[in-house]
């Protein structure tokens, strides 16, 4: 297939995944921020939201204090935030339009339909002139549904060939990055020393993390225990059955890169790097990670994941 087509498919999947993640971050933060201050603890939830979504620097340059309304605006509809939800959907559609021939009708329908809906939300948002939480939650639901629609239609309708594999690679590279970021922003509340017996103040912080990666129910099914910070780290880093865990992302990344290498008759540097990262995750344990330092571990992971993204580009996607 054309390198450019593969590149567009890869980024299309990344942007849809990112929009979904941003919607979840906003939603989880909103929950947290509406708690009485003595429950939520820090009072810096909106700053954390900016940090996790990688938008903190841009926000500080152009906006004032990190308050709910301004942060939500920045993460959802701001045209000047390159990673606002609005821009993610816009970019996803731009990529989709550039490779319409590589999409199934259902995929195009999902992304184009979402874009049309986005325009409507955007127009309403612009004309309303005040902050409307109910409308916001409708919007966030719409964004989450968009990723389900797109992802589902891709999964159900695409031929299992390189187009599918590159699209999946984009999704899992992005997802690994998102999961690692949210963990890293909240790593301080996940440190075991912070544990208090029973209703810890941090409880709501922890559940907010789980909500942001839609893993709150999954947590209970896996551990059948109260929410405990090291188990959250375990779930989101090392549990293969958790679809957003780092190891699950890499399980997929390795699988799809190997499929590409097999179809093309030769592996390359990206296969090598992905296998190395997977091995690191497979041999890790929570106690070892905490001993090394959760923040250090995650920083290293984000860098490795980023490097792999560049290698995939160099190996397959340049045009």
């Amino acid at each position: 297939m054309l390198s450019r087509t593969a590149d567009h498919l890869y980024w299309l999947a990344r942007y849809v995944e990112r929009a979904d993640f941003l919607a979840r971050i906003v939603e989880a933060t909103q929950r947290l921020a509406t708690l009485p201050t003595n429950y939520s603890g820090t009072g810096t939830e909106w700053e954390s939201a900016l940090e996790s979504s990688g938008a903190a620097a841009g926000f500080r340059e152009t906006r004032g204090a990190a308050e709910e309304q301004s942060v939500v605006e920045y993460l959802t509809f701001a045209p000047d935030n390159p990673s606002s939800i609005r821009n993610c959907i816009e970019l996803a559609r731009t990529n989709a339009r550039a490779v319409r021939t590589a999409l199934t009708v259902e995929m195009w329908d999902a992304i184009n339909g979402a874009w049309i809906e986005l325009k409507r939300f955007e127009a309403n948002n612009a004309s309303r002139g005040f902050y409307d939480r109910r409308e916001l939650s409708r919007f966030l639901d719409f964004v989450k549904k968009t990723s389900l629609d797109y992802d589902g239609s891709a999964y159900r309708t695409m031929l299992r060939n390189d187009a599918f594999w590159f699209s999946r690679l984009g999704l899992f590279i992005e997802r690994a990055d998102n999961t690692a970021r949210i963990l890293d922003v909240k790593y301080h509340v996940l440190l075991p020393e912070n544990e208090a017996v029973g209703g810890s103040l941090d409880y709501f912080q922890w559940t907010a993390i789980l909500r942001a990666v839609s893993a709150l129910t999954a947590y209970h099914w896996v551990y059948r225990e109260n929410v405990k910070p090291w188990l959250i780290a375990d779930l989101l880093i090392l549990k293969l059955e958790m679809p957003r865990s780092l190891i699950a992302c890499y399980d997929n990344i390795v699988y799809f890169l190997d499929a590409i290498a097999k179809a093309y008759g030769k592996p390359g540097p990206s296969q090598k790097q992905a296998h190395a990262i997977m091995q690191r995750l497979e041999s890790a344990s929570t106690s070892e990670i905490f001993k090394m330092g959760l923040h250090e571990f995650l920083t290293e992971f984000v860098q490795d994941n980023d490097r792999l993204g560049h290698t995939i580009s160099e190996q397959y996607l340049q045009y």
């Binding site: 297939m1 054309l2 390198s3 450019r4 087509t5 593969a6 490779v99 319409r100 021939t101 390189d162 590159f166 590409i260 093309y264 397959y316 996607l317 340049q318 045009y319």
Partner: peptide, 25 residues
């Protein structure tokens, strides 16, 4: 799409030894 052929732009193509190629994965 209906023809089942690649939709290419100029940047996807190049000429070498008087032959036309497209850049693929």
């Amino acid at each position: 799409d209906k023809l089942g052929v690649e939709l290419v732009e100029g940047r996807d193509l190049f000429v070498e030894s008087d032959k036309l190629y497209m850049r693929t994965t």
